[in-house]
Design a protein around this nucleic acid. Sequence first.
DNA 1: ACCTGTTGTAACTATTATAGTTACAGGTGC
DNA 2: GCACCTGTAACTATAATAGTTACAACAGGT
Lengths: 137, 137
Amino acid sequence: MVNSRFSVAIHILSLIATTSDKSLLTSDFIAGSVNTNPVVVRRMIGVLKKAGLLSSHSGMAGYELLVEPKDLTLLAIYQAIDGPEQLFAIHDEPNPACAVGQKIKHTLEGVYTSVWLAMEEQLQAQTLQDVLDQLRT
Amino acid sequence: MVNSRFSVAIHILSLIATTSDKSLLTSDFIAGSVNTNPVVVRRMIGVLKKAGLLSSHSGMAGYELLVEPKDLTLLAIYQAIDGPEQLFAIHDEPNPACAVGQKIKHTLEGVYTSVWLAMEEQLQAQTLQDVLDQLRT
DNA sequence: ACCTGTTGTAACTATTATAGTTACAGGTGC
DNA sequence: GCACCTGTAACTATAATAGTTACAACAGGT
């Protein structure tokens, strides 16, 4: 995929998890750490909030996690940001009159599903807490 | 990633592998099966040729595989088309003055590497021959 | 030698996604 | 009231993807 939304989401959640003084947690402060625009942060936080991962109050600084870091898998974060559910696209409408064209879509779907499941397994095996532990070392 | 280059490459290689009358194998014919433009096919074939997966002769119809389908892993195909070597990008220059910003890049790289390796393992486990077998059923 | 059909490429276009930005309405609490 | 914040809409810049046009060079048949 190669966009940075997942990285930004993990960065934001890590900041919220490790900042004890919640009044510091403004979109501006977070944007400073991520090195992006506050609006980008607020947009991402809106998505994470909709997914039930954190809470916020309009007009008031401070975000709070609604899930314990040890219970928050990276897969859950990935799904929260609504990342693509496939790694590879399949070209549109291969020619059904051709023996290969007719079957290739179904075949590729099978291949890609197995790859996808392996990836999900990895993301499921790691939690935000694992990330926090590595940030400390 | 979510582009269809990998799918198109596998489709092209499958066609070449299953078409016995090589004189049929023109970029136009292949484009008809893939449902795209002949130039897109020739471009992709140029890449696969550079990687040593097939041969072609300018001005002459007919492509030939240079690797046995059973020896051609999907990973080799993926590497041949020079697909991205990462699934997730990391945002540029997180703030080094911040405890999280300072370490997040290295941490995420570790996470993403484990995911990437799991994906490679899946692609390594399947060959073009496996694809051909599924196309026949 | 010529003609037809092919490959190999360069160059351009259209479409889409990503990220960044500006702007502003509305909430919060001092 | 004021300073500061969130939530969002709207716009822009940039880049990637795929499709397209165009053409030089090559092969093989007649």
